[in-house]
Simulated scan of single mutants.
Amino acid sequence: MDPRIAGLVEAAKKGNPQALTNLAHAQALGVFTPRDLNAALNNLAAAASVGWPDAVRELQVLSRTTGNWKRLRAAVNPDALRRAPQRRVVLEKPRVRVFENFATPTECDWLIEKCRDRLRPAQVYQNSATELSQHEGRSNSEASFEFEVSDLVLSLIRDRTARASGIPVHHFEVGMLLHYKPRETFGRHTDFLQAGMHEEIEARGQRVATFLLYLSDDYDGGETEFSEVGFKFKARKGDALMFINVDQDGAPDPMSMHAGLPTTRGEKWVLSQWLRGKPVNSHHTPGIVGAPLPPEWYRNV
């Protein structure tokens, strides 16, 4: 057993509800331990059975109902929670797809609250795309969904994203919560990795696609604009947008240039997920093995 989780397992065996909840999150995400969603749900239910409020609320979000912990656990349907809505083709150059009602309003609110207190000024790659720093073209804030704030809700949304995109979860970077206050913006940019990051691209693949889940809609302005073709997209809360950053041969597509336009009223919240062409290893999930995306994905997405 990984020593980083051994103490958590021992505390969970003794019925510690915080340990049970944390262990459930690790099992759902496959962090420091093999992924086991059924065990994760059972441990979360065990924490809820003694009234642990975080576990109870998480089960309510997952079950989409209310009641005692037994009813909540019985109502969780992982297959349904993984299911993605049909995609709608919006553009072919660049390739842009929409998934309406991808997440429930409750799921959206849950994701915002998980990371709201971790926001920091957003950064961009500069100096041949090798260094992250603040830039005048980007004024919004962001927070990353590191293990400490990730859970079963996020894990199942990642599964849903994998089914929608056709890209396995182990090709995902760490998800980012993006926040735009009025007049904040992210100017014209592309998401594919630049030539200066060839070692990164060789090791973990190109950022072949960007998947945006819109967590709020009570704002004016704030469209996602594809500036090369003059197309603006405004989502409803819970809708998702996927655009492909590469062409059918896997080469960077300059037509994927886009911007997050400023809001004029209200706050905009988005879950941003970058998807890679190869499996992504991290210090939480070392030793991931898997094949690069097949050529068919690039042609048929």
Rank of each mutant, 00 (worst) to 15 (best):
N43M: 07
Q194K: 11
V301I: 09
P3T: 14
Q60K: 15
A45G: 15
E131P: 00
K70T: 14
P292A: 10
A19P: 02
E225C: 09
F99K: 06
P121M: 08
S227T: 14
Y214V: 00
L59C: 05
H198E: 14
E199Y: 10
D159Q: 15
E223F: 03
P279N: 07
Q273W: 04
N68R: 14
T285S: 12
P262I: 09
D191T: 02
P94W: 01
G250T: 08
D159T: 14
G166Y: 12
C108V: 08
G250E: 08
F233K: 02
E142N: 15
L81D: 11
K268E: 11
I288C: 03
E148H: 06
L23P: 03
R57Y: 09
A24Y: 02
P168Q: 12
L44W: 06
R83M: 13
T161G: 14
L241C: 12
A24M: 03
G67N: 13
A24D: 02
R57A: 14
K93L: 03
Y298Q: 01
R97C: 06
L44V: 05
V153I: 12
L119S: 06
E225Y: 08
P286V: 04
L37W: 09
P295Y: 04
M242C: 11
G137A: 06
T224G: 02
D220W: 00
D79S: 13
L241Q: 03
H170D: 14
A48M: 07
T104A: 02
Y125I: 00
M255H: 02
V174F: 07
T185P: 00
E148K: 06
E296I: 01
E199F: 10
Q18D: 08
R138Q: 13
G7M: 09
C115Q: 13
W69C: 11
I244L: 05
E228V: 04
F211D: 06
I5W: 05
A240I: 01
V56K: 07
G290Q: 08
Q134T: 15
L91V: 02
M257Y: 05
M242D: 03
